[in-house]
Amino acid sequence: MQEILIHASKDHIEKVEIFKQLPEHILMKVVAHLRSEIFLPGDVIVSAGTPGNCMFFIYHGTVAVFTPQGREICHLEDGAHFGELALVFNETRVANVVAVTPCELFVSRRSDFLEAIAPFPDIKEHLISIATERLYQTQQETTE
Rank of each mutant, 00 (worst) to 15 (best):
M1D: 11
E3R: 13
E3D: 15
I4R: 09
L5D: 07
I6E: 14
A8S: 13
H12Y: 14
K15V: 01
K15C: 06
V16E: 01
E17R: 10
K20V: 05
K20M: 13
Q21S: 13
L22W: 09
P23C: 04
P23M: 04
E24A: 14
E24H: 12
E24D: 14
I26T: 13
L27E: 13
M28T: 08
K29Y: 03
K29M: 15
K29H: 12
L34K: 05
L34R: 09
R35E: 12
S36H: 09
S36G: 03
S36T: 11
I38S: 12
F39M: 04
L40D: 06
P41I: 11
V44N: 00
V44Y: 01
I45A: 02
I45E: 02
V46T: 02
V46G: 00
V46D: 00
S47V: 07
S47Y: 10
G49H: 04
P51A: 09
G52P: 02
N53R: 05
C54W: 07
M55R: 03
F56K: 07
F57I: 12
F57Q: 12
F57E: 11
I58G: 08
H60F: 11
H60Q: 15
H60I: 14
H60L: 14
G61C: 09
V63C: 10
V63R: 01
A64D: 14
V65F: 01
F66V: 01
T67M: 09
T67L: 10
P68H: 04
Q69G: 10
Q69N: 05
G70C: 05
E72A: 05
E72P: 00
I73G: 01
H75Y: 14
H75D: 06
L76S: 05
L76A: 05
A80D: 15
H81S: 15
F82W: 04
F82M: 03
E84W: 00
L85N: 14
A86N: 10
A86R: 00
A86D: 07
A86V: 04
L87F: 04
L87I: 06
V88R: 00
V88D: 03
F89L: 11
N90T: 13
E91S: 10
R93S: 01
R93M: 11
V94K: 06
V94A: 14
N96E: 02
N96F: 09
N96R: 06
N96D: 15
V97F: 00
V97P: 00
V98R: 02
A99T: 03
A99I: 04
A99D: 05
A99R: 02
V100N: 03
T101L: 07
T101W: 01
T101G: 06
C103S: 10
C103L: 04
C103Y: 04
E104Y: 02
E104R: 06
L105I: 15
F106I: 08
V107L: 07
F113H: 06
E115C: 13
I117R: 06
I117T: 06
A118V: 13
P119Q: 03
P121E: 01
P121G: 01
I123E: 02
K124Y: 07
E125S: 13
H126A: 15
H126E: 15
I128A: 04
I128E: 09
S129H: 03
S129E: 09
I130W: 00
I130R: 00
E133N: 09
R134W: 09
L135C: 08
L135H: 13
Y136K: 10
Y136P: 00
Q137I: 12
T138H: 06
T138L: 15
T138Q: 14
Q140E: 13
E141F: 08
T142F: 10
T143R: 08
E144V: 12
